[in-house]
Amino acid sequence: MHNKNSRRYKQEQATTPKMYQWYLSTFKRYKSDDEPIMEGLYELPAADIGKGLTEDWVLLNLNDKNCFDVDYIPQEGDNLVIRDAHKQWVYLSFIFQNGGWERGHYNPFDTLQTLIIKGEVEHEISPLNSV
């Protein structure tokens, strides 16, 4: 393990390819407050997960063109999450609302969602590729 302030560690981090995964879920339903689905803590979405993947950049591309390489038409309430494959708690989250993608996330303690499709981000960013 290297010291995080060392030149060698910083060079390795700069040259190590980042892999990002994405998944789309559909909003299923809210549970009532007195019926928690699970208990615990969760991390809120980040504004920047590295290598240029920021909320603003992703939103600009999502709302400008079809970024998916699959036949997908967003539905109201769909949730797109983009995660750092090596740090699952580092992620961006967007919800399709009012005809466009917006920053947002669902609380996992009171929302049920169903996975629609998942894939990997091609970062020179062309379409989001499905797996």
Rank of each mutant, 00 (worst) to 15 (best):
V81T: 15
Y42N: 01
L62A: 06
W57Q: 11
Y91I: 03
L62C: 06
E43V: 13
Y30S: 08
E39L: 13
M38K: 13
N66R: 05
P36Y: 04
P45F: 05
A47K: 13
G40E: 03
E55S: 15
K28D: 11
A47S: 13
W89Y: 14
Q88Y: 09
E55I: 09
G52D: 08
L92T: 07
W57Y: 14
G52Q: 08
K65D: 06
N63Q: 01
Q88S: 13
E35I: 09
D64A: 14
R29K: 13
T54I: 02
V70Q: 11
G52P: 05
V58A: 10
E39F: 13
L92C: 10
N63E: 02
G52T: 04
D56C: 00
I49T: 10
D84F: 04
L92I: 08
E76P: 03
R29N: 10
V90D: 14
L60E: 15
K28F: 05
G50E: 09
L92P: 07
Y42T: 10
E35L: 10
P74Y: 02
T26D: 06
I37A: 11
I37Q: 03
D48T: 02
P74M: 02
I37C: 01
L53T: 03
Q75T: 09
A47P: 00
K87P: 00
G52M: 08
N66W: 01
V70G: 00
K31D: 08
N61G: 01
K28V: 03
A47D: 14
A46Q: 14
K31R: 12
F27H: 12
Q75Y: 03
Y72F: 15
N63V: 00
E55K: 12
W89D: 14
L44H: 09
M38S: 15
V81F: 04
Y42G: 00
T26R: 15
D69V: 00
L44K: 14
Y42E: 07
K28W: 02
D48N: 15
L53I: 12
D84K: 04
G77H: 05
K31L: 10
I37D: 01
P36W: 02
R29H: 09
Y72V: 05
M38T: 12
P36L: 08
L41M: 10
I73D: 11
